[in-house]
């Protein structure tokens, strides 16, 4: 087990390193001149380049970049070309906003999805089941931003219950709508998945056995059904959280949130592309993505005893084979 996790972590770090390298190379090889002004003299440009470390070989630049990230935890000391703000001050603020909304959205998605899925499985063919099915069809087929626009139009404009835009002063009230619309897809997926898993487990023999031994109600559901039904759900949560990263782009545009998604869009579509930001955000996104995948893999491994058992069996078999091998020789 520990070996597996260790291997997985090493793999993730290597992957991240390769991605960082690729991104860095791509961004640095791009044609273009960081000093477009013609008024600067050749010496001034030379001096500036030396100051920014652009005169060194590209591999050395890469080494410096990595060393800087690892030692100071920030993406370069240089301010970006975009509005002159240094990345070190803009990025943490943006990350804070994005993570708050994202965190609420994950909670909404997972908890409401779970509750809906359980309700649907326990009342098969009744109202909650139908509701769950309809929700999952809507969630899969209607793009989340269409849903967001409708929510905003009806509940902030026509019926002003919630503020139209997100603001940090009314944090809780103004974050409900963005989080809810962001979580629609994950909510419906978790609900559908939970329902199907629950139904499968409820039809299995050991639940029948538990029932025939006189177990019923909450105890049966929590101890016997949920415990087994929940394990595979961890596997769907990983891609969903990753989807949230993408969804954040649109949410931040629609609700006017200053988050990393908005930074990314600004960096791409703003006047001139901002290489430093694209690079920093690219690395940040990849780190998040790989980190979440890794974390959920480990959680899955810890939750499901079967994985551990099969590994042990495999080990035992291998040992047995080793013992047999010399005998055969």
């Amino acid at each position: 087990m520990a070996k597996y996790i260790f291997k997985r972590i090493i793999m993730a770090i290597v992957t991240l390193f390769i991605i960082t390298f690729l991104l860095f190379m791509l961004v640095r090889i791009m044609p273009g001149n960081p000093f477009p002004s013609e008024r600067m003299s050749a010496e001034a440009i030379e001096k500036k380049r030396a100051e920014m470390g652009l005169d060194k070989p590209i591999l050395v630049q890469f080494g410096d970049y990595i060393a800087n990230i690892v030692s100071t935890g920030s993406f370069g000391k240089g301010s970006s070309l975009y509005n002159g703000a240094p990345i070190a001050t803009v990025l943490p603020k943006a990350m804070g906003n994005s993570f708050k909304i994202g965190g609420i959205a994950i909670c909404f998605g997972v908890f409401i999805g779970l509750v809906l899925g359980i309700a649907a499985a326990l009342n098969r063919g009744k109202f909650w089941d139908v509701f769950c099915t309809v929700l999952s069809i809507i969630g899969v087929c209607i793009p989340s931003y269409v849903f967001m626009i409708f929510l905003q139009y009806f509940f902030a404009y026509k019926l002003p219950v919630f503020p139209f835009y997100f603001n940090n002063r009314q944090f809780f009230v103004s974050s409900i709508m963005p989080a809810l619309s962001l979580s629609l897809f994950s909510m419906s997926t978790v609900a559908r998945f939970t329902r199907n898993e629950m139904v499968e487990v409820m039809d299995s023999d050991y639940v029948l056995l538990a029932e025939s031994k006189g177990m019923y109600g909450t105890k049966l559901v929590t101890r016997h059904i949920l415990r087994n039904a929940l394990i595979p759900i961890v596997t769907v949560i990983a891609p969903l959280i990753v989807d949230l990263l993408t969804g954040a782009l649109v949410v931040e545009k629609i609700y006017g949130i200053n988050g990393i998604g908005k930074l990314m869009v600004d960096a791409i579509t703003g006047e001139g592309i901002d290489y430093n930001y694209v690079l920093a955000l690219g690395i940040l996104y990849s780190t998040l993505y790989i980190g979440i995948m890794l974390l959920l893999d480990i959680v899955y491994c810890l939750l499901d005893p079967r994985i551990r058992v099969t590994e042990k069996k495999g080990k035992r078999r291998r040992e047995a084979e080793k013992k047999e091998a010399p005998a055969a020789a």
């Binding site: 992957t15 991240l16 991605i19 961004v27 960096a267 791409i268 955000l281 690219g282 990849s286 995948m293």
Partner: peptide
């Protein structure tokens, strides 16, 4: 698979 699509678009 571990490079987000968004990053690819950005680059």
């Amino acid at each position: 698979n571990s490079i987000p699509r968004l990053v690819i678009v950005g680059v």
